[in-house]
Write a protein that binds this DNA or RNA. Sequence first.
DNA 1: TTCATTTGTCTACAGTCGTAGACATCGATA
DNA 2: TATCGATGTCTACGACTGTAGACAAATGAA
Lengths: 215, 215
Amino acid sequence: MRKSSIPRRRSSAETREAILLSARKAFAQSGYDGAGVREIAEGAGVTAMLVNRYFGSKEGLFAEALAATMASPIILAPQNIELAKPAEAFATALVSITEKNATPLEGFLILLRSASSTRAAEIGREQIEKHHQKTMAALVKRSGAPQRAAIALSLVAGFQVMRQMVGLTALNNSSDAVLVRILTPLFEELLNGNGDEPKSATRKQGLAMAKSRAK
Amino acid sequence: MRKSSIPRRRSSAETREAILLSARKAFAQSGYDGAGVREIAEGAGVTAMLVNRYFGSKEGLFAEALAATMASPIILAPQNIELAKPAEAFATALVSITEKNATPLEGFLILLRSASSTRAAEIGREQIEKHHQKTMAALVKRSGAPQRAAIALSLVAGFQVMRQMVGLTALNNSSDAVLVRILTPLFEELLNGNGDEPKSATRKQGLAMAKSRAK
DNA sequence: TTCATTTGTCTACAGTCGTAGACATCGATA
DNA sequence: TATCGATGTCTACGACTGTAGACAAATGAA
C-alpha cells in the first residue's frame, strides 16, 4: 500500500504528464520533424529512451500530445461563443490569446508546423476536424453553412500564424484594441451570415455597405 | 565565340534555374528541414554538391528560392487589387488559386512549412514583409492601417492553409461560388476600413468595450 | 531481509543530413 | 593539337536522428 507521501522518485502518471507537456511545447515550437526525442526528454527531465517506453514511438507520442492539446480548452476559447456579443468575444479572445508572451494556441501550431510530415499531417487533420466539429457546432448551426465555420477557422489560424509564427511587425507592434476593432466585424459577418437572415436585431454597423455588395 | 545552338550540356543559368525550380517545389512540399539537398538536386538532374556550388549552402538556396517564389505574380494576384471591385476580385482570386488541383501558393507554403527552423523563419519574415509592403501598399494606403493589411494577409494565409495544407473537407467539397460569397464581404470590410470613416458616420459602440478589455 | 516489479539510464547501431575536398569531363580558344 | 576555365561528380566525414537491448537503482510486498 502506498502511504508514503513521497512515492518513488516519480510516479508513472506524473512522468507521463511531464513528457506530454514537454512534447506539446516542443512540437508547437519546432514541429514534428524539428522536435527531437532527446530534446523532449530533456524537457521532462528524463532520457530519450524512456519516452519510447511510455509512448511506443515518436509517432505515438505525437498523436497523444496533439490530442491532449486539442482537448484543452484554451484553443478558440469555445466557451465564449455563446455570449451575447459572440463576435467581439471571439475577436478579443483571439487577440489576447495570441499576445506576444501568451501561451501559443498549441493545437494550430503543432498542426501547421508538422504539416510537412505526411504521417503527422494525417493525424493532424483527423484531430482538427474532430475538434472543429465540437467547437464550431454552434456557429455552424446558426449560419447553416459549414463553409462559414471553416473560413472563420481559417481566419483564426491565419491570424495566429502571422502573429505568432511569422511574427509580422504590424501585428506585434499594435495595441490589442486596434486588432480587436478590426477583427470584430469580420467575425460578426461570419457569425451572422448573409445568405440567410434569421435575426434582424443583430446590429452590424460597419457591415451595411459590405453586405450590399455581397450578393 | 558561341555560334553553336547547342551550348554545353547545360548553361550555367539553365542549371541554376532548374535547381531553383526544384527547390521551390521541394520546400513548398516539405519545408526547409524536410527537403533534402540531395532530393532537390535529383529533381534538377544534378548532384547535391553542385547545389552548394551554385548557392553556397542550403540556407542560401532557401533564401533565393523563397525570394523567387514571392516575386512571382501568382501570389495574391496583386494586379487585381486595383480593379473596380477589389474585394470581390480578391476573393475570387484567392478561391481560384487555392482550388484543389491548382498550383499552391508556394510562397506561403514555403514560409509556413519552414517556420519551425529558426533561421528559415527569419529569412521568411524578411521576405514576406518585403513582399507584404509591395502587394498590400494600395491597401495600406487606403485604410491607413498596416494592421488591416496584415489581417487581410492573415485571412489569405489561413484560408490557404486550411484548404491546401490541412485540406478541410468543408472547404474542399463546396463550390467556389459559395466561398467567394462568404469571403467577399470580409475583404470588403478589410479594404474599406472603419477606423477612419471617410464616408459613413456609423460609429462603433462595441469598440469601447473591446478597448476597455484590452488594457 | 529478500525478492520481484517498477522506473529509469547507458551504450550502440543503422540511417540521414549538410557539405568539404579531390577528381573528372566538356567547350571554347590559342 | 594543346590548354585552361567552366561544369559537374565521387567519396568521405562529423553531427545528427529514432530506437533497440542490456543494465542499474529504487520501491513495495513477502
